[in-house]
């Protein structure tokens, strides 16, 4: 469709005066900027890898699988992370917890295998958001290398070893529940439903200090 001539506005180039037409003011302006950089002794260049960047603790790097206070994998294999994952890089095979083993007495389900394809992952952190037991967390390890694709498929043992490696680092604190299980897997000490919907102001529960937490 041709442009309507009414929509066209013609703009004239502003005319230069004598000094501007010599181009000398523009040249000196450019030299001033160069001079400022020469005199600046605070370079922004980082000497990576000799000098590692100081990353904030919310940086989203390699995943880890947290352990609970008994040293078991905290994950309950609910597969919420795999559901939330936009890159479909999480593959979980669930298993029922051994019934006769007192070590697993309070658990119903745990991951038999838990594999994250770190090459497919886009490090968006949705898995961390989705996890109901705060098991999967993103650390600030970012320099990830491997000699083969297989090496970049992180399985349960490797993800747990990332936890062991990073749990004491100041940059990678275990963010919630400090080693305790979360709502879903905590069968002996159950939390009641949180406020998913709004509560009327005159409701007795609205005046309670905590949202029906059993402690």
């Amino acid at each position: 469709m041709p442009i309507n001539p009414k929509d066209i506005e013609w703009v004239e180039e502003p005319s230069m005066n004598f000094w501007e037409s010599t181009y000398l003011p523009a040249v000196f302006d450019g030299l001033r900027t160069t001079g400022q950089h020469v005199a600046d002794f605070h370079p922004v260049t980082e000497f990576y890898p000799e000098q590692k960047p100081d990353l904030p603790s919310h940086y989203r790097g390699v995943h880890r699988l947290n352990r609970d206070d008994k040293g078991r994998v905290k994950c309950v294999a609910c597969m919420m992370c795999a559901t939330a994952c936009p890159a479909h890089c999480i593959d979980i095979v669930a298993q029922d917890a051994p019934k006769d083993d007192p070590h697993w007495a309070d658990r119903d389900k745990f991951p038999k295998s838990f594999v994250i394809d770190e090459l497919k992952c886009i490090y968006c952190g949705m898995c961390e958001e989705a996890c109901p037991v705060d098991s999967i967390e993103l650390t600030n390890i970012f320099d990830l290398t491997g000699m083969s694709r297989q090496e970049m498929m992180f399985d349960k043992e490797k993800l747990l070893s990332v936890f062991d490696q990073t749990k004491d680092s100041a940059h990678n604190p275990v963010r919630t529940h400090k080693g305790k299980l979360g709502h879903a897997s905590d069968f002996t000490n159950l939390h009641t439903l949180g406020p998913a919907t709004t509560v009327r102001a005159d409701d007795r529960s609205a005046k309670a200090n905590s949202a029906g937490v059993i402690e």
Binding site: L190, T192, L193, T197, D203, S205, A208, G212, I214
Partner: peptide, 13 residues
């Protein structure tokens, strides 16, 4: 549902 529990007691498990 109300989406919010007023129970302050341990659950019967």
């Amino acid at each position: 549902g109300r989406g919010y529990s007023r129970l302050q007691e341990p659950k019967n498990i």
